[in-house]
Design a protein around this nucleic acid. Structure first.
Length: 372
DNA sequence: CAGTCCCGCCATATC
DNA sequence: GATATGGCGGGACTG
């Protein structure tokens, strides 16, 4: 069985295997009505990825409140309606445990970080006895301290509890690392942050930008700032809002091993089952998502003559004035008139996705030349 | 070359 | 002892 790995030739687009895309697909798969429980195996299968990857995604989604671990192999879908609450808690927790002495985030790494390494010891909900021996930690906790989930929360706290809104992963790693600063530890931490940033980006919680001064890449928080006072005002988008994410296309599974094709043989076309989403509620900041996704793989390959102009335009405008309060809801309503035919835009996105996938599969490596 | 970050080995936690 | 989780970092990709 399992005939070799010399499957179809090329086209191993790294982007198609990214955690970000996987997250997008995961969301489009489960951010639906009727979904209340998610099986890891099911997810792995449906998304066409190894179990390991599911853990990565699920962990960060959980740390933001979208999911909640129910039991072994089982998670419950909480939805984006829970996010505001989760973030609010994170903010408070962050401020509390850290007061206002969040390490500075400046160009110059000035470490003299406070002794408290932002270690929040939030015990599990399923803690029968609240008699938490303050010493029972160490090993067990040590591992947890390094979990992706916690790291995600701490990363987010950086945005919610600080005045800076632009942070590079290096800075973040430095801060979240407290003191241990061996190049090795740093590298690992940064790798993790990249992972986190990717899935957070796919949900548009954050956005990658380039520091004005330095040319260095950094991330900016897009969600509302946690300053909203009284956890009621902060409406991420209200309950039951469903965001439209990528497509149903499962991450094509090609090993990274670049096997130079030898001869043309049948490509195993991915079952691109584009299913039209019937969600018309044209809310949310999805244009950003579309835009970004639309140009993943093969640099800027363009749309045809009938490109979704409206979308691109909206995005451009949006990015340009990302000065105000980064409130998705506002942005969404502000630009809604531009393309209130969300359904169409959506449909288009689906086709694009399908086409892209098909193209990279069939048409071979070279993506449409199209200058740049 | 520097920035990304996928992949999957294998230590740990749980059943 | 088996299975479920998920650190961790080598090194393949990008631009």
């Amino acid at each position: 069985m399992a005939f070799h790995s010399s499957d179809s030739k090329e086209s191993y687009c790294r982007k198609q295997k990214s955690l970000g895309l996987l997250c997008t697909n995961f969301l489009s798969l489960y951010n639906q009505d009727g979904i209340e429980t998610i099986g890891l195996d099911d997810a792995a299968t449906r998304l066409g990825v190894e179990r390991r990857r599911i853990y990565d995604i699920v962990n960060v989604l959980e740390s933001v409140g979208v999911l909640a671990r129910k039991a072994k192999n089982r998670y419950s879908w909480k939805g984006f309606g829970e996010v505001p609450k989760a973030l609010e808690e994170l903010r408070e927790e962050g401020l509390r445990e850290n007061g206002n002495d969040y390490p500075r985030v400046s160009d110059d790494d000035e470490d003299e970080n406070n002794p408290t390494p932002i270690t929040s010891s939030q015990d599990e909900k399923t803690n029968p006895s609240s008699l938490t021996r303050f010493s029972m930690a160490s090993k067990t906790d040590n591992r947890k301290e390094k979990s992706l989930g916690l790291l995600t929360q701490n990363f987010i706290k950086l945005f919610l509890c600080t005045d800076v809104d632009l942070i590079s992963l290096d800075e973040a790693a430095k801060i979240l690392l407290g003191d241990a600063r061996d190049p090795s530890t740093m590298r690992t931490k940064v790798r993790r942050l990249y992972d986190i940033a990717n899935v957070l980006s796919s949900m548009n919680f954050i956005e990658k930008v380039h520091h004005p001064d330095t040319r260095k890449p950094a991330f900016r928080w897009l969600g509302m700032r946690g300053k909203l006072e009284e956890g009621s005002a902060n409406s991420f988008a209200n309950e039951s809002k469903k965001r439209i994410f990528g497509t149903e296309i499962t991450n094509t599974s090609f090993k990274r091993t670049k096997l130079i094709d030898g001869n043309l043989n049948q490509i195993t076309k991915p079952q691109m089952q584009m299913q039209v989403k019937r969600e018309v509620l044209g809310n949310e900041f999805d244009k950003t998502n579309l835009e970004r996704d639309s140009r993943e793989c093969s640099k800027s390959y363009q749309f045809g003559p009938f490109a979704p102009v409206s979308v691109s335009k909206a995005v451009a405008a949006e990015n340009k004035k990302v000065k105000q309060v980064h409130d998705w809801e506002n942005l969404a309503s502000t630009y809604r008139p531009e393309y209130h035919n969300q359904a169409l835009t959506d449909l288009f996105a689906h086709y694009m996705e399908a086409w892209r996938s098909w193209y990279s599969e069939v048409a071979g490596k070279k993506p449409i030349q199209l200058m740049s």
